[in-house]
């Protein structure tokens, strides 16, 4: 029954929606394949943001450790990370993405989604590394000393004692970075990915209406990001409370 109604809605507007704004909404958002175009686009954005963030955390944490270490052996690596962070911060994400696709990959047969995930991961790694670095430095030096004084190795002190506290300190900023990453996925249309924004453009090409598709895209972004920001504020508040040692 319900599938029947749904599939009929895709072909004819519901009763009373035959004209005006309601018809426009039906025509842009419900008609034919259009709802699925937007949903598929959202799925693309979500995948790029989530997998990109995971790569970003791995890169970010490693880079943070390299930058914090004082070892002479890592001096070259440290220099490389400095260049990496400066390049990522100094070049717009869209330009980075186009360079990845047209210059580094340079083949139209490559997997666009994969390239996007790599590009977003590498980019977010630079920002995340600074977040992790601040998080690690915010852990009191006495924690490391306590860990070492009971006989734990430097590595175990880092992973068991410093890292958990650093992540907790960094969590609000990590959530914030993730929302930025998610919003930035709206540029992937430039290398031919059909994300939500590009899907909306495609709909506009058929309906000659840009208002409804674009407002819809804006509302979807807003409703994903806002709860995350609320979560971030809560984490921040809890952090401040537990800090009163």
């Amino acid at each position: 029954m319900i599938p029947l109604i749904l599939s009929s809605i895709r072909e004819v507007p519901p009763l009373g929606w035959e004209e005006g704004l309601l018809w426009d909404i039906w025509n842009n958002l419900l008609r034919g394949d259009r709802p699925f175009m937007l949903l598929r686009g959202l799925g693309i954005s979500a995948r790029i943001a989530v997998f990109g963030a995971m790569i970003g955390w791995v890169i970010g944490f490693s880079v943070a450790l390299i930058r914090i270490s004082k070892s002479k052996i890592l001096a070259l690596l440290r220099a490389i990370t400095t260049v990496y962070i400066s390049v990522i911060r100094g070049v717009p994400l869209l330009v980075q993405l186009m360079i990845w696709w047209f210059v580094i990959v340079g083949s139209a047969d490559a997997d666009r989604l994969f390239v996007c995930i790599i590009c977003f991961g590498v980019s977010s790694g630079a920002y995340v590394s600074e977040v992790f670095r601040a998080g690690i430095l915010s852990v009191d030096k006495g924690q490391t000393e306590a860990g070492r004084s009971v006989g734990l190795s430097a590595f175990k002190t880092m992973t068991l004692i410093v890292f958990p506290q650093a992540v907790k300190n960094a969590l609000p900023a990590l959530v914030n970075d993730f929302t930025i990453l998610f919003k930035d996925t709206s540029v992937v249309g430039f290398i031919g990915m059909v994300d939500m924004l590009r899907a909306a453009n495609h709909i506009t090409a058929f309906t000659f209406n840009s208002f409804i598709p674009l407002i819809t895209v804006a509302i979807v972004y807003w409703s994903v990001v806002t709860p995350l920001i609320a979560l971030m504020s809560r984490l921040e508040r809890r952090l401040r409370k537990s800090d009163s040692r």
Binding site: D140, G142, Q143, E145, A146, G147, I161, Q165, S242, R245
Partner: peptide
């Protein structure tokens, strides 16, 4: 230590 340095 003076400041305990317990693992919070």
């Amino acid at each position: 230590f003076q400041h305990f340095n317990l693992f919070p």
